Amino acid sequence: MTVQQIEKFIALHPKGASGSVTISFKTRKNVQGVFIQTPDYEELKKKNFWRIVMSPNLDDYIRTKSLSHARIFNGLEFSKLSIP
């Protein structure tokens, strides 16, 4: 997916129905997570990279705000974004 497609989805569904988004990939299993905005968000976005906290790690991330709970994904690997 392109940066514009991902930005449009995030703008239309900023938190999703349950706070998370289902991300479908071209070459791996789907994941559920939340896009997070960190100080490097704009820099990563320019390169079509996105920092995502997976649903199982979300409570720990909310409690600690530690970026160790997040992973960076390349938007070109996304095939579809949807609300679970």
Score class of each variant (00 low, 15 high):
5 Q>F: 04
5 Q>R: 15
5 Q>C: 06
7 E>D: 08
7 E>F: 07
7 E>Q: 10
8 K>D: 00
8 K>M: 00
9 F>G: 03
9 F>D: 08
9 F>V: 06
9 F>M: 06
9 F>N: 06
10 I>S: 03
10 I>E: 06
11 A>Q: 14
11 A>Y: 04
12 L>A: 14
13 H>G: 03
14 P>D: 07
15 K>V: 13
15 K>Q: 14
16 G>P: 05
16 G>L: 02
17 A>L: 14
17 A>T: 15
17 A>M: 13
18 S>R: 15
18 S>C: 12
20 S>F: 10
20 S>V: 12
20 S>R: 09
22 T>S: 11
22 T>L: 13
22 T>Y: 04
23 I>Q: 03
23 I>W: 02
24 S>Y: 04
25 F>D: 13
25 F>T: 13
26 K>T: 15
27 T>Q: 14
27 T>P: 01
27 T>G: 03
28 R>M: 12
28 R>H: 13
29 K>T: 08
29 K>H: 06
30 N>A: 10
30 N>T: 09
30 N>D: 09
30 N>L: 05
31 V>T: 10
31 V>W: 01
31 V>H: 05
32 Q>N: 13
35 F>A: 02
36 I>N: 01
36 I>R: 01
36 I>F: 00
37 Q>I: 12
38 T>W: 03
38 T>H: 04
38 T>M: 05
39 P>H: 01
39 P>Y: 01
39 P>F: 00
39 P>D: 12
39 P>A: 01
40 D>F: 02
40 D>P: 11
40 D>Y: 02
40 D>S: 13
41 Y>I: 04
41 Y>H: 14
42 E>R: 09
43 E>Q: 13
43 E>R: 15
44 L>H: 09
44 L>T: 11
46 K>Y: 05
47 K>G: 11
47 K>A: 13
47 K>F: 06
49 F>I: 05
49 F>S: 08
50 W>N: 05
51 R>M: 14
51 R>P: 10
52 I>H: 03
52 I>W: 00
53 V>K: 04
53 V>P: 00
53 V>H: 02
54 M>D: 12
56 P>A: 00
56 P>Q: 01
56 P>K: 02
56 P>R: 02
57 N>K: 11
57 N>D: 12
59 D>C: 04
59 D>H: 02
60 D>I: 06
60 D>H: 03
60 D>G: 03
60 D>C: 04
62 I>L: 12
62 I>Q: 12
62 I>M: 09
63 R>W: 05
64 T>E: 10
65 K>A: 09
66 S>L: 07
66 S>V: 06
67 L>E: 12
67 L>P: 05
69 H>D: 03
70 A>H: 02
70 A>M: 03
71 R>C: 08
71 R>I: 10
72 I>W: 00
73 F>V: 04
74 N>K: 09
74 N>R: 10
75 G>L: 00
75 G>N: 07
75 G>A: 04
76 L>Y: 11
76 L>R: 13
77 E>S: 06
78 F>N: 08
79 S>E: 15
80 K>R: 15
81 L>K: 02
81 L>W: 00
